[in-house]
Structures are given as structure tokens and as C-alpha cells.
Simulated scan of single mutants.
Amino acid sequence: MAATISSPPTVSLKLMIDPKSNRLLFAEAGKDFVDFLFYIMSLPVGTVMKLLGEQGTVGCIGNIYGSIENLDDSYILSAPEKEMLLKPMLTNYLPNAAFLLPSLQSSTHTNLYKCRSRSCLNVAIVPDSRCPTNGHNSGIHNSMYQNLTFVNPTYNDPNSVDDGGFVEGGVPYMIMDDLSVTPMSAKSIITLLNEFDVKDVGCLEEKVIAVGVNECVELLRASMQESKAVLSAVFLVKKESFIKSERIH
């Protein structure tokens, strides 16, 4: 029996477009897409550069990353320090938004370590590190070896069915072309249409697109450039990515 090949995960994004001016007014998204946008803020710069590296980096920051990557190890004080710069440390708290980016090969840690002293509040991510408080003493106190397990945040609401992330589910969100995010409401839509001087709502078009890993990498890249039309730059020029297009009645 042939193995079943699963499709890459995607989320839906609904674009609202004024065809007369060929302008994106806003996008409607759910929790999954907004969680992805907010998750970007938790990524270290080195991780972002690694994600964008295969398709070109952004600005001069990419030159710094390339310099570290190409610098001979004889000029680096220690191999772990070079690894730390190229693959920055991430905690193990990765919301569901992480699946919309390529597999992150950054160093992750699930444990913390401390020395034997009960009063010491120092922690380390590398076992057997020297304790800065008790390291001057002889004996076992100077070694941070006792394991402290890293615990993900929990929610106090026992009735919550939310599966993590950053924002509430079951709520539509309005995403502007510059990636500004606000909860969607009838008032916010009317205000926006007035700002864009849209007279005939019936002429507006919806385009529902599937957003996957490739699109999210492009969004990440575009968001780091000097542009206030990120969604337009990524989606409006890629007609083949549209999965549905219909006029608003």
C-alpha cells in the first residue's frame, strides 16, 4: 500500500480588495495567522537571518550573519559562542504558530541548572557551569548541576479550550497592509472604508488564500524591509496562490 503523503499545513487569509484602484484595503484572519505574526517578535535576529538566508538576507544585518558564518574558527574565542550567534537560544515555549515557519534548527533548552546552595538564585542553561556567587568556594557548591525543569506557561481559566498561542480564538482580526492588527468590528470596517473613500461596497472583491511556510517566510522578509504594503507585496502579485475569488454582494 502506498504511503499517504500529507499536505503542508496552511491557514486561510481573506483579502479585501478594491479592484478599481487595485488596492488592498485589509485582510481578515483568525487566531492562527495572528499568532504567527506575533510569534515573529519572539525570534532572535540570528534565527530570522537563518530563515531568510537561502533566499537572500535583508539589509546589512545579513552581512553580519555571513561574516560570522564565514569567519575562521581560529578567530572565534570558542565554538559554542559561534554556534550561539548563528543559532540563538530559544526556549521550549513554541506556540502553534511555529509550524508556519521552516523547522527551526536553533538551540533549544528545556532544562535549567543551579548550584547546591538553597539561597542561590542563579541559573544556567549549561550543566556544570561555575556559579558566579559560590564559584569562589571549593567543593561541589561551585558547580551548577542540579536540574530545574523549564515549565511552559499555563492558563488559570479551567474552562478555556484554547490551545495556546498569543491571542483569543473565535474572534476575527483585521490585518492592515502594514501588518497592523486590530479586532474586527462593523465600526472598524466602516471607518476604514470611509478612510479609503470607498463609495460602492458591492464592487469590492474577496480573495481567500492559503498561507503556508513559503508565504510566511516571504511575509517575514517583507516585514523587515522599508515597506508599508507587506501583504500586497507578498500576495497580490501571486495570482496562482488564490484559492477563491468572489465579488462582495
Rank of each mutant, 00 (worst) to 15 (best):
L71A: 12
L71K: 11
I76A: 02
I76N: 02
L77R: 10
S78A: 10
E81L: 11
E83H: 06
L85R: 03
L86Y: 04
P88R: 03
P88G: 05
T91I: 08
N92Q: 07
Y93L: 07
Y93H: 10
Y93F: 09
L94Y: 03
A97G: 13
A97D: 02
A98Y: 12
F99V: 13
L101Q: 00
L101K: 04
P102M: 09
S103Y: 09
L104G: 02
Q105L: 11
N111G: 02
Y113L: 04
C115T: 00
R116G: 01
R116Y: 07
S117V: 12
S119P: 01
S119L: 14
L121A: 12
A124S: 10
I125P: 02
V126D: 06
P127G: 08
D128V: 08
D128N: 13
C131W: 03
T133E: 03
G135S: 07
G135T: 02
H136Y: 14
S138Q: 12
G139P: 04
N142F: 12
S143T: 08
S143E: 09
F150K: 02
V151M: 10
V151Q: 12
P153M: 13
T154I: 14
Y155E: 11
Y155L: 13
S160R: 10
V161W: 08
D162H: 15
G164T: 11
G164N: 07
G165L: 08
F166G: 00
V167R: 04
G169M: 00
G170F: 06
V171K: 13
M174T: 02
I175W: 02
I175V: 14
I175D: 01
M176Y: 14
